[in-house]
């Protein structure tokens, strides 16, 4: 119509929006930089290293193509460790969830020692892994350990058990210690959610004729569903790559019975000085973890939608 109207470019972004976009890029730039340095670079480096045969102390070696991956696929080490990792993760995670949810429900009740118990429960989580492992190693000790002593006095066993030196005791041992160390996280997350469930819902359910068990399944559990999904996924990722607890407690032994993938990678890189092979294992491990990650991302997306 008029000259003024035609002067305005039709489909261009308004200048203000463009300015905001520039500002946005500027603001996230530091994060991207740090992210690239500590995550993207090591990731690419690992992939790069995994096609070489490298002697760790000198970091020298030659290109070997897919050899390391062929070893991963055809050798026993990776698959054994994957199996160990899955047993450890599923076992310790299940215990963490069951004990964590149970204790959270208990601590949500009006019991007189509630505030004391709430702080005590956090203790294992705050304890340094080294200290925790030392204490547990002492408890597990087959000669003077308190655990054997107690079990024998109760008449459950009549000979001291070799807890960390034989199978399946070693696996049971690490699973128990892992559960003990990490269940407080579950307690805190579940307890926080429990406290946000409106009391009215329970009252309505009582009037509607629901008993305590029905109230748990019809009111509590559905409200915990989303937080439990996130907890399980997060803990699964963290347990899957857990290193220090297992390394300090059994070192992966007896032989390789508790050698998870993290321990395998470490052993390969610094025990056998095969950095290239270790890099290949870690890439393999990362691919497995990618499954968890996709699930986690999908879950969080679902919640935002």
């Amino acid at each position: 119509m008029t000259a003024i109207a035609t002067n305005i470019p039709k489909s261009a972004t308004p200048p203000l929006e463009r300015a905001y976009a520039r500002l946005g890029v500027l603001l996230i730039a530091p994060t991207i930089l740090v992210f690239s340095l500590v995550i993207v670079y090591p990731l690419l480096a690992a992939i790069y290293l995994s096609v070489f045969s490298i002697y760790t102390p000198t970091l020298q070696g030659g290109f070997v193509g897919a050899d390391n991956y062929i070893e991963l696929l055809t050798g026993k080490a990776f698959w054994n460790s994957l199996k160990v990792t899955l047993i450890w993760t599923v076992g310790t995670l299940t215990l963490q969830i069951v004990a964590g949810v149970g204790l959270a429900l208990l601590l949500h009740q009006n019991i007189w020692f509630r505030s004391l118990a709430r702080s005590l429960v956090l203790f294992p989580y705050f304890l340094s892994t080294v200290v925790a492992v030392l204490v547990w190693k002492w408890l597990f000790n087959d000669l003077y350990g308190a655990l054997n002593q107690g079990l024998m006095q109760l008449g459950i066993i009549d000979m001291p058990l070799d807890w960390l030196g034989s199978m399946p005791n070693a696996m049971i041992g690490v699973i128990l210690v892992g559960a003990w160390k990490f269940f407080p996280f579950v307690v805190i997350a579940v307890l926080a959610r429990l406290q946000t469930i409106p009391e009215n819902l329970y009252e309505a359910a009582r009037i509607d004729g629901a008993g305590p068990i029905a109230r748990f399944f019809d009111v509590t559990l559905p409200q915990l569903r989303s937080v439990l999904t996130v907890i399980i996924l997060l803990r699964a990722i963290w347990d899957f790559k857990e290193f220090d607890l297992l390394y300090l407690l059994t070192g992966g032994g007896p032989v390789t019975s508790t050698q998870t993938l993290s321990l395998l990678v470490y052993q390969e890189a610094f025990g056998l000085n095969q950095m290239g092979q270790a890099a290949a294992y870690s890439v393999g491990m990362m691919l497995v973890m990618l499954v968890f990650m996709v699930l986690y991302i999908r879950q969080t997306k679902e919640k935002n939608a």
């Binding site: 409106p198 009215n200 819902l201 009252e203 309505a204 359910a205 009582r206 009037i207 509607d208 004729g209 629901a210 008993g211 019809d218 009111v219 559905p222 409200q223 569903r225």
Partner: peptide, 20 residues
């Protein structure tokens, strides 16, 4: 008598509908 046994029904100010 438990609430469920009193043959009453209640409407709450916040409605208290089961969200799921």
């Amino acid at each position: 008598l438990a609430p469920g046994k009193r043959d009453i029904a209640m409407v709450f100010q916040s409605y208290a509908l089961y969200p799921h």
